[in-house]
């Protein structure tokens, strides 16, 4: 049984428009003027127990909305979803004992208190007994390297420190599934890597499944084997991260420099010239159309080579291209 399964899930928001003031409120009560917005338009997917699944898409794609439906925060407009065999919006409380969630933009730790106070409160909320809770806190403090931070009021922590405490809090009750909505938002490179490493470690140690959204392709690349790309409420791509690379990383960019001047009409068959200078050129080709051999041969034949660099687009660029393709299909 998959840990998460979603079938044809839809969510339409009603944007309320009301005039200011008491009279406006009363009028809105009788005659609301509504405008609809389709945030999620019939998505289906599933996630296995213990899987690390990436969920990415541009701003407003519907990632947070989907995660909120899966935690039971929002009711969908239609469609089905099950998390660990439960329907989130009907069995919200039961489910909450089994899953953890972190929303990067919505802290759950009490702002004026040290994180450990929230941990103890969560212990009561999740009905953990005191001994077990103490052990668990010690374990997570070690895993997340937050031993020194636990006694400091949360408002005095840096964003990276706070986020490690947030994720640790969501793991107190040993959830089987973790829903992380942009946990790396606003973190610097080092803090991101630390957080990734810890999430990976918790997945290794306890087999907790993670559904992760992020705007950083690096997060996905480092953690997830499979990725779902969503755009404008629809899934536009789903596959292994490696397949994503293989499929889209066929475009190579070549930077070449020569010891002698190039003819201004320098060109190679099947290769797009991005820029031709006097001593060098930048070009791009797709290995599925133009094999590598002739291109390199052509480059060598053109003169005495000083330097060649062949590079692939970053995952970031690949994803950008997929968004763009999805947009143009719609438009």
């Amino acid at each position: 049984m998959p840990a998460v399964s979603v079938r044809d899930l839809r969510k339409t928001f009603q944007l309320k428009q009301k005039a200011a003031g008491l009279r406006g409120s009363l009028r809105a009560l009788w005659r609301p003027s509504l405008q609809e917005l389709d945030a999620v338009r019939g998505i289906s997917f599933s996630m296995d127990e213990g899987e690390l699944l990436g969920f990415i898409g541009p701003n407003g794609a519907g990632k947070s909305t989907t995660i909120k439906i899966l935690t039971g925060i929002l009711h969908p407009s239609s469609g089905e979803a099950e998390v660990l065999g439960r329907v989130p919006w009907r069995q919200r409380q039961e489910l909450a004992f089994q899953i953890g969630s972190v929303f990067g933009q919505r802290p759950q730790l009490w702002y004026h208190l040290p994180a450990v106070d929230t941990f103890y409160l969560f212990g009561k909320i999740y009905e953990l007994d005191d001994r077990e809770l103490k052990g668990r806190i010690a374990f997570l403090a070690e895993a997340f390297e937050i031993e020194e931070l636990l006694e400091t009021p949360v408002r005095k922590l840096s964003l990276g420190q706070r986020m490690r405490c947030e994720v640790a809090a969501s793991l107190l009750h040993r959830p089987r599934v973790l829903l992380l909505d942009e946990p790396s938002i606003g973190l610097d490179v080092v803090a991101k890597q630390r957080l990734r490493a810890t999430i990976q470690r918790m997945n290794d140690l306890e087999g907790v499944g993670v559904l992760l959204t992020s705007h950083d392709a690096g997060d996905i690349e480092a953690l997830c084997r499979r990725v779902i790309i969503i755009n404008d409420g629809e899934i536009v791509y789903r596959d292994k991260v490696s397949a994503l690379r293989r499929r889209y990383l066929t475009v190579k960019t070549v930077d070449v420099r020569y010891n002698e001047q190039l003819p201004p009409d320098f060109a190679l068959p099947g290769v797009e010239m991005v820029k031709v200078g006097r001593y060098g050129a930048k070009m791009r080709f797709d290995t599925r159309v133009t094999p590598v051999g002739p291109v390199i041969g052509g480059l060598a034949a053109a003169g005495s080579l000083a330097d060649v660099t062949v590079s692939e687009p970053s995952l970031e660029e690949v994803i950008g291209a997929i968004y763009a393709r999805a947009e143009s299909k719609d438009g």
Binding site: F13, L15, Q17, K18, A19, Q35, S64, I73, L74, H75
Partner: peptide, 14 residues
Amino acid sequence: LRRYESGSAFQVRT
């Protein structure tokens, strides 16, 4: 609560 729309800082005031 069934109608709760979460982060609805999306109200349009006219």
